[in-house]
């Protein structure tokens, strides 16, 4: 759990829940060089899942082209105030992080 917590916002409106996630991650492409000319190794999130009360609502696979500190927004039908949204990611170094938020 090296990374900072994710920021998760989930809002239900007219039966549709909109989820916005802001993740803290370097998302290094493996193509950038540091000051000494050495290539900075790739370090990026590969897999992400979002669950609503243990039901998968979004699966995502990222490549290196996703921006640093990735932002993600999606909508699903259902969800009620107070329900739990759990987001987990895994990067190419095997590090993982899981955070949760309640639907507002």
């Amino acid at each position: 759990m090296a990374a900072n917590p994710m920021k998760i916002r989930a809002n239900n409106k007219d039966g549709v829940t909109e989820v916005k996630v802001l993740i803290s991650h370097e998302m290094e492409t493996g193509q950038r060089k540091d000051a000494s000319g050495a290539i900075v190794p790739a370090w990026f999130i590969t897999d992400l899942t979002a669950k609503h009360n243990d039901r998968l609502v979004l699966g995502a696979e990222f490549g290196t082209a996703v921006s640093k500190n990735p932002y993600l927004a999606f909508r699903f039908k259902g969800g009620a105030k107070g329900d739990k949204i759990v987001v987990s990611w895994k990067d190419n170094k095997g590090e993982t992080r899981t955070d949760e938020a309640a639907i507002a």
Binding site: L58, G59, V66, S67, L72, A73, F74, R75, F76
Partner: peptide, 17 residues
């Protein structure tokens, strides 16, 4: 850049950077 799996009930509407 990215691919998303959308289970039933999730809208075909995603945003990222």
């Amino acid at each position: 850049a990215a691919s998303f799996t959308l289970p039933e009930g999730t809208e075909a509407n995603v945003q990222t950077r």
